[in-house]
Simulated assay, not measured.
Amino acid sequence: MPAVAQEAQEPPPVTVPALTDWAPESGSYAFGADTRLVADSAVERRVAGTLADDLRAAGHGTVPVVRGGARTGDIVIDVRPGKASLGAEGYELHAGKRLSVTGATETGAFYGTRTLLQLLAQGDRVPAGRTVDVPRYQERGVGVCATAYEGLQGLGS
């Protein structure tokens, strides 16, 4: 079977919520000691600063926030108000030689960094690909089964 056909069958990386429209590409993004967060505007720098703090707390070391052109291994934070199709909370994540998180708003870019943190919690390599995550509902949330919780309470007795 050709490599392209095999690649298309690869499942998307595992995240919550799931990446329902993951489009795989060849290769991978590699997070490393030389990784920088590239953010030019004040809004982008706020998102990047939060991500830098979270990466440090997760054991990924100190990642500097810089302005200017991105190089291989960098993470680019981009807020583009013109990408109205992303809505207020949506984002696009693209992994390749560098990784980019783009939102139409600061909130959208922030949510993209939450997905990125989940991916990096699984290892320093992220499969190359692209996804667009736009919430289907006005409010984000997580459901918890009350029956399961009640069952867990009885385990401590």
Rank of each mutant, 00 (worst) to 15 (best):
L93M: 13
G69R: 13
T105S: 15
A30Y: 04
V76R: 14
R56W: 00
Y29C: 00
G49T: 03
L116M: 06
A84R: 13
A42L: 05
E89H: 14
G143F: 07
A42Y: 08
V38F: 14
G108Q: 12
A84Y: 07
I77Y: 08
S85P: 03
G103T: 08
D54N: 12
K83C: 04
D53W: 01
G143D: 13
Y137E: 15
G73W: 06
C145H: 09
L37R: 07
Y91T: 04
T62A: 09
Y29L: 02
A146G: 08
V66R: 12
A128F: 11
G27C: 05
E44I: 05
V134L: 01
R56G: 02
L120F: 03
G129D: 10
P24G: 10
P81D: 13
A23Q: 15
G103R: 11
S26A: 10
I75H: 07
A146L: 13
G87K: 09
F31K: 07
G112I: 00
Q138C: 00
S28E: 14
R80N: 06
G129Q: 08
Q122G: 07
A146E: 15
D124F: 00
L99M: 09
H94S: 11
G61L: 02
E89P: 04
T72M: 01
I75M: 05
I77L: 06
T147C: 12
Q138Y: 01
V65F: 04
T131F: 04
E106F: 01
A52V: 01
T50K: 03
L119N: 11
Q138N: 12
E89F: 07
E25S: 13
R36M: 02
G59W: 10
A57D: 14
R114G: 10
A39S: 10
G103N: 11
W22Q: 02
Q118P: 03
G143Y: 12
V47T: 10
P127W: 05
V63C: 01
L117G: 11
D124M: 00
D40C: 02
V43D: 15
V66N: 08
V76A: 08
Q138P: 04
F31G: 04
D74Q: 10
V101G: 06
G143L: 09
A48H: 05
Y91C: 10
E44T: 01
G96Q: 12
G69V: 00
L117N: 09
R80Y: 01
G96P: 04
A84S: 14
G143R: 09
A33W: 05
T147F: 08
A39V: 03
R114S: 13
R140H: 12
L120P: 04
F31L: 02
S100G: 12
L55N: 05
G49Y: 05
D34I: 00
A88S: 14
L117Q: 15
L117C: 03
A128K: 09
